[in-house]
């Protein structure tokens, strides 16, 4: 089966009902996307399918055929995506395990709404659990990323 992952077409030998998460992690070797719960309740496995956020742990690869899959590794080559820059500026991460998913959800939110309110952020990221409790910095960093996206280097 062929998958389009981060702009590259990959042939994978996997049953059509195998979750995308495990294809990415164990067959393709992209381990930035995380396993947290396996039942779409924690958000650690969030990737994009044609730009929309998706829980890869419950998505069979058959549902991704012909669509563009983007993982944390595909966001930028060097951590320079505005959301990643904002995450760096605000020192968001702690243990870091949930942050790939948090960032992918934030990127999708900003693509849909360039100047999200606190309520927009809370709603869009409510499915992403952080066990360290970095939520306040995440919210601040999403606002900062919105500024960076628009080239308003406000400090």
């Amino acid at each position: 089966m062929q998958l389009n992952i981060n702009g590259t077409t990959r042939d994978v030998d996997a049953p059509p009902d195998m979750p995308l998460l495990w294809v990415l992690r164990d067959l393709v070797g992209l381990t930035g996307t995380k396993f947290g719960c396996g039942i779409a309740q924690c958000g650690a496995c969030t990737v994009h399918l044609d730009g929309a956020p998706l829980r890869s742990c419950v998505t069979p690869i058959s549902a991704t055929a012909g669509k563009a899959i983007t993982t944390i590794e595909g966001l930028s080559a060097d951590g320079s995506h505005p959301v990643q820059r904002a995450w760096t500026e605000l020192d968001v991460v702690q243990c870091g395990y949930c942050q790939s998913g948090q960032i992918m959800s934030a990127v999708a939110l900003l693509a849909a709404k360039s100047e999200p309110s606190d309520a927009d952020i809370d709603a869009a990221l409510s499915g992403n659990i952080c066990r360290c409790g970095t939520y306040q910095r995440i919210r601040a960093a999403v606002h900062r990323a919105a500024e960076l996206r628009q080239g308003q280097e406000v400090t």
Partner: peptide, 11 residues
């Protein structure tokens, strides 16, 4: 600033 951020925001 944390030294582990770069690794943790890029996967």
């Amino acid at each position: 600033r944390r030294l582990d951020t770069a690794e943790k925001i890029t996967g």
